[in-house]
């Protein structure tokens, strides 16, 4: 019973063994991260907050419209848009910023690093686990919202709703990447969370307000406003949802019109590309920092 018979990896086949095993250990980490996230208080809090707000928005948008409810789908989405742009980035950034810094603070990071896994696997495993947990949390809100829509508004806007979910998942992954990057850079989880909050404020409020002021003060041209605006993943997200809902950005005034005319059918892809860029760039940077700097 206590005989230890597992064959040792010989050095000859060890390399192949390592590549094959990448998925295994990353998945083990992802599974645990997912479980831990779901068991944690922040997850519960955000899930409840997001769900309650999503239901409230769905109801309020459809109230007073009588049986024309199904036409209110667009407004429900617009209402959800505001909610998502506030809550989802906060949730994802904070989830990300706590991850490495938290392990570091508890001392568990050292123990993990002594295991036969690479630093990249460790980071990616945690990222994947958190990403799945975040999507899981948002699905609760979206599911309840869809139930309200089905009840009050019939089946209108199904494909737009689907795209809203896809773009929201993209947004939360990009915010998670930013959070993870901040986490890698911070020694303590308090610092990481502080930086996360700061990044959230910056992306959600400060950058837009700054660009508004810039637009007015410097009389920026439409192409300049558009180019600067889509750098912000939140703006790219918003435009992506609207362009999927209305097939055009003309509701966003001259700048939106310019974008629709210039990029045409490529516009949704351009916006999706911005968000995908914001998923991979911070994550890649986090990977480089985590593996090269070697902080424990």
């Amino acid at each position: 019973m206590t005989t230890l018979t597992t064959p040792k990896p010989t050095s000859a086949c060890a390399t192949r063994h390592a590549y094959r095993s990448f998925a295994g250990s990353t998945l083990a980490l992802a599974r645990r991260e997912f479980r831990d996230a779901l068991a944690s208080r922040w997850f519960l809090l955000y899930t409840i907050a997001f769900s309650v707000l999503a239901i409230a928005v769905s109801f309020m948008s459809l109230a007073g419209s009588g049986s024309q409810g199904f036409a209110g789908f667009g407004r429900t989405t617009a209402g959800l848009l505001n909610l998502i742009m506030l809550v989802v980035p906060l949730m994802a950034i904070i989830a990300g910023s706590g991850t490495i810094a938290g392990e570091r603070e508890r001392g568990t990071l050292l123990y993990l690093l002594a295991q036969p896994i690479s630093r990249a696997e460790l980071l990616l495993g945690k990222y994947i686990g958190l990403a799945v947990a975040l999507c899981c949390s948002m699905f609760v809100g979206f599911g309840l919202s869809a139930a309200v829509l089905a009840w009050r508004a019939g089946g209108a806007g199904l494909s737009s709703f689907f795209m809203l979910i896809v773009f929201t998942c993209g947004l939360s992954l990009s915010m998670l990447s930013i959070g993870v990057l901040l986490s890698v850079l911070s020694r303590r989880s308090g610092v990481a969370n502080g930086l996360g909050l700061f990044a959230w404020l910056l992306l959600v409020f400060v950058s837009d307000l700054g660009l508004m002021a810039g637009t007015v003060l410097f009389k920026l041209r439409v192409q300049e406003v558009f180019a600067i605006a889509i750098i912000n993943p939140l703006q790219a997200f918003k435009m992506g949802v609207i362009v999927n809902m209305n097939a055009s950005l003309d509701v966003l005034g001259p700048v939106g019109m310019y974008a629709s005319l210039t990029y045409g059918n490529a516009l949704p892809w351009l916006l999706a590309a911005v968000i995908i860029g914001w998923i991979f760039m911070p994550l890649a940077l986090a990977l480089v920092m985590f593996t090269k700097r070697g902080g424990v």
């Binding site: 060890a14 063994h17 390592a18 645990r32 036969p116 696997e121």
Partner: peptide
Amino acid sequence: RGKIARSFVGYVPQELAFHDDARLGS
């Protein structure tokens, strides 16, 4: 090639830091 090198080693640390909420089995 730290990952392969570490796969030859079992390590017992001095300061024991575990995820306290987890169960021993999991």
